[in-house]
Write a protein that binds this DNA or RNA. Sequence first.
DNA 1: TAAGATTGATCGGTCAATCTTG
DNA 2: CAAGATTGACCGATCAATCTTA
Lengths: 145, 145
Amino acid sequence: MQMQLTARLARALADDSDLSYPDYEVLVALTDQPDGRQRPGELARMLGWEKSRLSHHVSRMARRGLVSRVRCPSDQRGSLVVVTDEGVAAITAAAPGHVDAVRRYVVDLLSPAELDSLAAISATVLAGLRADPCPDDEPAEEGAP
Amino acid sequence: MQMQLTARLARALADDSDLSYPDYEVLVALTDQPDGRQRPGELARMLGWEKSRLSHHVSRMARRGLVSRVRCPSDQRGSLVVVTDEGVAAITAAAPGHVDAVRRYVVDLLSPAELDSLAAISATVLAGLRADPCPDDEPAEEGAP
DNA sequence: TAAGATTGATCGGTCAATCTTG
DNA sequence: CAAGATTGACCGATCAATCTTA
């Protein structure tokens, strides 16, 4: 179910938007920032991606004009990923269709009790994953280290 | 949750088996056959894959000695994918660890009621996907067409 | 021609190595 | 040297085109 649903949602998104699902995730994360920009490492952590994956993906998206890289924040060895006007336009156009697809393929088919149950299950499994981290996974920030 | 769980299970499998998750799926499908062989098109349908994906994957697995291609079944334009002794050995070695991982990351964390609910949700969503097929998806066989 | 299957180009993702700056 | 990030090589997946035979 997991695999087939993922494939279907990705196809529906690609069909009416020229964005892949990973593209969509990156744009959502960036447009959630007040200034539409974020450090690559932080962005990777938010998405649960490896840093190299993010870097490759940003390169491809930059080639298509959806985002751009900015050198020289306050830390001279770092960079910033910035969403472009074109990127904002792309996600604005794509979001309603994607939300519709999720509704159509999942939300509309399940009862309120099932949706609650699914949310609880997801939270439990995610907590389990966090409790047993992989060697290279960054632990994510803690309130009191 | 879906994405992170998938990534974790794939990593756990790769860590202790030299098999990727797609490798595992192919070997399971083949070893489920009484004679360990299957037509590529049928195999693709069983897995929900495109035929070209299966073909590429079988090529890589054949290069590693896990399966082999046989020309000339009863239909001269077709072929058969056959699991090798090495392939059987690989899946036999990998299966217990994978089952353990699924248990550890999912089954053990959920209550019996949650597992029932998850099964029902999965069945509903899958039925929804089948009810709204993509153009190129093969309909899968019916009892009474 | 249509069905069965494979191939080539290209995008997506991981791992290990590398480059630059604190 | 360690942290931030990128690069290159290679496996994985999709799309469109192709090859062969019923």
